[in-house]
Design a protein around this nucleic acid. Structure first.
Lengths: 132, 132
DNA sequence: ATTTTACTTTAAAACCGTTCTAAACTACTT
DNA sequence: AAGTAGTTTAGAACGGTTTTAAAGTAAAAT
């Protein structure tokens, strides 16, 4: 399926700007990035896009499940092209995130979900510090 | 140990402002709160404190391990008086966090820690959605 | 006790990531 | 081709957090 079809399937109008973003993000490679990272990459590829559009686009992509946003307490939002169920190492000094495949973690015992709620996804964050 | 001693032990000068904050936060009760929540509580207790001091104070308390900051992608920083190793339910709609005691979760299998790093804490976030 | 020194508090400004505004533009429908 | 609904944009606005620099305070030195 090409990117135009992916966008249509997700209910998004395949505009020029969204196609530029899709070409960068939806190529099967997993990556973590901020809105600014993406804008820089767009700019350095000879295109350009207003930061408002970058944010609009990321929000739409996220709401459609084409990308994810990672849970971190950093001051900038981190997005992830890996939409599979998975976890992260977090280097707290640098903010760097590294994927952990779902199969590499198994949760043996889980708490009871509070009344009236459903489990809507589990994220495991393993914080790293340098070994010296 | 009283709050003044707690501050001194943590290497912090027990100023009037830090004592006000300590009296609110270090009473053994677990709570999640933002900087603004704390300032409101200070104000409504008849004291007052500039927001810069609230932030300075929270940063110091955090660096000394008197409180923790929770990993969430929300736009405001969430602090936690529970410094024990523990986990969270996150209601993504409201941003509400609920503690999960460490004993209620067991991780059976863990990924290999990358070369040159040490495991510096694991946080499990169970995202909740309303069941309707 | 007084002075000195280093640290702390403060209001206000600055900062920075993100969202809003409203006008111009573009994809799709008729 | 015309209409309309959705999209992009620059720039302003917003909101949480940090910085600035001056005034204040705790602890150390005298």
């Amino acid at each position: 399926m090409n990117n135009k079809e992916k966008l249509r399937n997700a209910g998004l109008r395949p505009t020029k700007q969204r196609m530029i973003v899709a070409d960068i993000l939806l190529n099967g490679l997993n990556r973590h990035f901020t809105a600014e990272d993406l804008q820089d990459e767009i700019n350095s590829s000879g295109n350009s896009m207003s930061i408002a559009t970058v944010y609009n686009c990321l929000k739409k992509f996220k709401n459609c499940g084409l990308i994810k946003q990672v849970e971190t307490s950093k001051d900038t939002a981190i997005f992830d092209t890996n939409t599979d169920y998975h976890h992260h190492f977090l280097n707290e000094e640098t903010g760097e995130l590294i994927d952990i495949e779902n199969e590499e973690v198994s949760l043996h015992k889980l708490p009871e979900i509070p009344q009236g709620y459903l489990n809507n996804g589990i994220e495991v964050i393993i914080k790293l510090k340098r070994d010296n």
